[in-house]
Amino acid sequence: MRERRFTIWVVLAILLLVLLNLPAAQTLGVKNAVRSGLAPLQESVSNGWHRLREGWATVRGLGGMAIENQRMATEVARLLGEVRDLKLLERENEQLRSVLGFTSRAQRDLIPAEVIARSRDGWWQTLRLNKGAEHGAAPNQAVISVDGLVGRVLSVSGRTSDVLLLSDPTCRVSAQILRTGAFGIVSGRGPQWDGSVVCRMEFINKNIPVQPGDEVITSGLGGVFPRGLLIGYVDRVSTDRSGLYQYADIISKADLGTLQYVFAVRDASPGAPYLRVQQEGARP
């Protein structure tokens, strides 16, 4: 009896040791299988949770709905005007480019996805999406929302993708200040006490003036993030310890804490700012 028990313990110990030392490819396979298996359940629970929150928000905001409706109508009218202007500019831009002999920039495919889980647990800042390799998602694709850059795809399983958020200190983005063209590297500052998302843009040329409120966009350098995606706005500017560069605290435009729908940018080659949403059910 004692011998049998000893054998069981040895087998269990070996099993644990094997599990702890499995090669990355094997562990990824196991993880992907579990993630794909749990994805439908996570999606249902996430949807239910989202509806509950929306319902509660609706109940709380009933009094202010008329004012909100009026404000939205004004906003829609303003945006429609902007879209008309942009269409004109786009046409003009295309004509000028063809006159100058530039090649026409291709449109990018966007994969619409829904957030089914979020891990803002302090160690890592990630989201899980309900679209994976089967839908065309792949590691290192940029992920955006209607407001701007969200992060990049870290890993994919058949039906899910994990996204490393912009707020994670290990997510580094080559960026540019729109007004001055100054380059720098944006990385996350981790979770903040008030739940806000703060990033820092480092290695900005100290001779280029940077002001609070300046728009920060992706530069397209580095090959992961397409050029021209809005990251956020400069909040505060300082000089680094060496005195050679400036750094700026950036407030992210996309509200990473409440995201529900995002898009993975399928074509990651640097270039066109134009985006086209992939039709539901379309395959890569």
Binding site: L12, L19, V34, L154
Partner: peptide, 24 residues
């Protein structure tokens, strides 16, 4: 313990087996 750790690690970026070992 093993299953709980396996599922928890799979749903996060934690190396597989770490939480299983702790739980066990």
């Amino acid at each position: 313990a093993l299953l709980a750790g396996l599922v928890e690690d799979s749903l996060s970026l934690m190396p597989l087996g770490t939480t299983s070992f702790g739980f066990a």
